[in-house]
């Protein structure tokens, strides 16, 4: 495995579409999980994906991260069609995913966790022949990116198990931010966390957007979604029921669309292109 250079700040066109899905269909036997869903992530935004259980939220995310292969439909990254055969394909193209359960190695330190699976080697003979890790370089880089994200942590050399749950998830989120070239997908990143810790992670996600990286946030938690999302993609029955702005719609509106109690009213200014 070759070490990956850290992400350069993404040049952001105002309404450039980073990731798009068109008419994606996925069936499991008789069950249609995705029934022609469309999806659009614009550069520099936090797009929340909400929906009731079974609405196709997680199938959509799996299709976007390569965890499942759709039966039909197109996925476009920066306007180019892509075909992911597995999660590694999506990662190679710059899509990083953060999972709900804390995907960290507890006994390893923060810097080791940030670079886990993408360790850097020292230059020259030591790295090429003896395959020695560049521990100092990785530490410095880890410290730099944590400072840039304004995420407060104890010493970068302390074991992840010494951290709080929020700080641990912060490490996983920062890892995605460090390596995602195109976008980061956060799948219920705060579901296992308390209120204060959730706040830390939400701040971190906003810091990532400020650096220019678009984020897809899957969440059940409406207040969290309304706190940080720029737009809200609402799933219902395997389709995109609507995309609304938290500025023009209330939580009650969103829940109504989610459950089918209300139809989406077309002229929502911020949702149209």
């Amino acid at each position: 495995m070759t070490p990956v250079e850290p992400r350069e700040p993404v040049a952001t066109a105002p309404v450039g579409v980073v990731l798009e899905a068109r008419n994606v269909i996925k069936r499991y036997g008789h069950i249609t999980a995705l029934d022609g869903v469309d999806f659009e992530l614009r550069s520099g935004e936090i797009l929340a994906v909400v929906g009731d259980n079974g609405a196709g939220k997680s199938s959509l995310i799996k299709a976007l991260t390569g965890a499942i292969v759709p039966d039909n439909g197109d996925i476009l990254l920066d306007g180019q069609p892509v075909h992911f055969k597995g999660p590694l394909d999506a990662r190679k193209l710059g899509i990083e995913t953060v999972y709900q359960d804390l995907a960290v190695a507890a006994a390893l330190d923060i810097a080791s966790n940030l670079f886990l699976g993408r360790e850097r080697r020292r230059p020259g003979f030591l790295g090429n022949v003896l395959r020695m890790l560049d521990k100092k370089g990785m530490r410095a880089e880890a410290e730099r990116s944590m400072a840039e994200l304004k995420f407060r942590l104890p010493s970068i050399g302390s074991a992840v198990e010494a951290l709080s749950g929020g700080q641990r998830q912060g490490v996983a989120v920062a890892r995605a931010a460090l390596f995602a070239k195109k976008l980061a997908i956060m799948d219920e990143p705060t579901a296992a966390l308390g209120v204060r810790e959730t706040g830390q992670v939400l701040d971190l996600i906003q810091a990532i957007r400020q650096r220019g990286l678009p984020v897809v946030l899957i969440s059940h938690n409406m207040p969290n979604v309304f706190e940080i999302a720029d737009r809200i993609h609402i799933m219902r029955l395997g389709k995109r029921a609507a995309v609304v702005s938290p500025k023009t719609h209330t939580m009650a509106d969103v829940v109504a669309i989610m459950t089918g109690a209300a139809k989406f009213e077309e002229p929502a200014a911020s949702a149209s292109r």
Partner: peptide, 11 residues
């Protein structure tokens, strides 16, 4: 430590 996390980061 965590085989699942290791798999997720591509090890």
């Amino acid at each position: 430590n965590n085989p699942e996390a290791a798999r997720l980061v591509g090890i």
